[in-house]
């Protein structure tokens, strides 16, 4: 059982890693989109899936990261990949500042406020805030990323960059899930009063979830800026946040595999049925209603158990 699962994961990973060998450039590019959305959704999953905080403004953090990278790169000629930590940090700090006064609000109020934050950020970008964002046209001329002296420009090159980041994210987030930090987020989601009553600083963990999730969105923003070389406010509108929200909910809030599966379905499937592209959102809407009625925990619901009888034995010490 356990081995079967491991085998399946290794097989899937190998298949994905070899994908550029048998897919054309367009198909690889679709996989790149899926990877970017996967990264974003994994960050949102910390906030929405693990901690249960209704964030529908994730695109705002994505935008802050992308614009930070673009501004640093075009104005100060900092190589785009070097901006990764900085754009993550900026987006994370921005999230902390924004979330600080509102994070105590009850679920649906928080949802509305985060929608508002997302819109304000978008409007600010359109209005060329600080005279640095280029208004509605955005920023262009972002340089190509370079890794180990290789300039990354073709889809398959981006594929390994993006999916490498996804793999690293999965690795780190799985560890996080198995820790005191990861558990604290779940306590928060399950019952905030009980969590605080068990000695957990719920206000701190709410902010930490926002900060970390947003930092990931910010870094995904850097990759996006590097891939597109042009960014504009429309790439970060409300519907981006809705799509990300949907990926997390449909996949199974709190389940990394589920979130990635949903990223494949939500981003990949419409590419398969391009003749019905205009009906894409219609189907999404319908699926959201139907899922909530028949399978509210998502396609792959998060499992409660972190520990197996084997790991229990370690606690004997």
């Amino acid at each position: 059982m356990k081995h079967g699962k491991l085998f399946a994961v290794v097989l899937l990973a190998a298949l994905l890693a070899a994908a550029p060998l048998f897919l054309n450039a367009y198909q690889v590019d679709v996989l790149n989109s899926i990877g970017l959305y996967g990264l974003l959704a994994l960050g949102l999953n910390l906030i929405l899936g693990e901690a249960g905080l209704f964030n529908m403004g994730h695109a705002a953090f994505y935008a802050v990261g992308a614009y930070t990278a673009a501004i640093l790169n075009t104005r100060y000629q900092i190589p785009i990949l070097w901006t990764l930590p900085l754009s993550g940090l900026t987006a994370g700090l921005f999230a902390l500042v924004v979330a600080r006064p509102v994070v105590h609000l009850r679920g649906d109020y928080l949802l509305i406020v985060t929608i508002g934050v997302g819109e304000i950020v978008r409007i600010a970008l359109v209005n060329d805030i600080f005279g640095m964002t280029g208004g509605a046209n955005g920023i262009f001329g972002i340089s190509r990323p370079q890794l180990f002296g290789i300039v990354i420009r073709r889809p398959w090159e981006f594929f390994y960059l993006i999916w490498g980041c996804v793999a690293l994210t999965i690795f780190l987030f799985l560890r996080l899930k198995q820790s005191r930090f990861g558990r604290a987020l779940n306590y928060l989601r399950e019952d905030e009063v009980a969590a605080e009553g068990s000695g957990i600083n719920t206000a701190y963990y709410k902010l930490a979830a926002f900060g970390l999730g947003a930092a990931w969105a910010g870094m995904a923003g850097t990759l996006f800026a590097a891939k597109m070389t042009i960014i504009s406010p429309e790439s970060f509108n409300f519907w981006e946040s809705v799509v990300l929200f949907m990926i997390v909910i449909l996949g199974g809030a709190g389940n990394i595999a589920g979130v990635l599966l949903a990223a494949f379905l939500v981003i990949g499937l419409p590419e398969l049925f391009r003749e019905f592209a205009s009906a894409r959102m219609l189907v999404f809407g319908l699926v959201m209603v139907v899922m909530m009625v028949f399978r509210p925990r998502g396609l792959l619901p998060a499992r409660g158990g972190r520990f197996s009888p084997v790991t229990l034995a370690r606690g004997r010490g």
Binding site: G107, D108, M281, L282, F284, G285, V289, M292
Partner: peptide, 14 residues
């Protein structure tokens, strides 16, 4: 509550 909120959003998009 989350389920109803998501359903509401879905209905809106639809």
């Amino acid at each position: 509550r989350l389920s109803a909120v998501v359903s509401a959003l879905g209905a809106s998009i639809f």
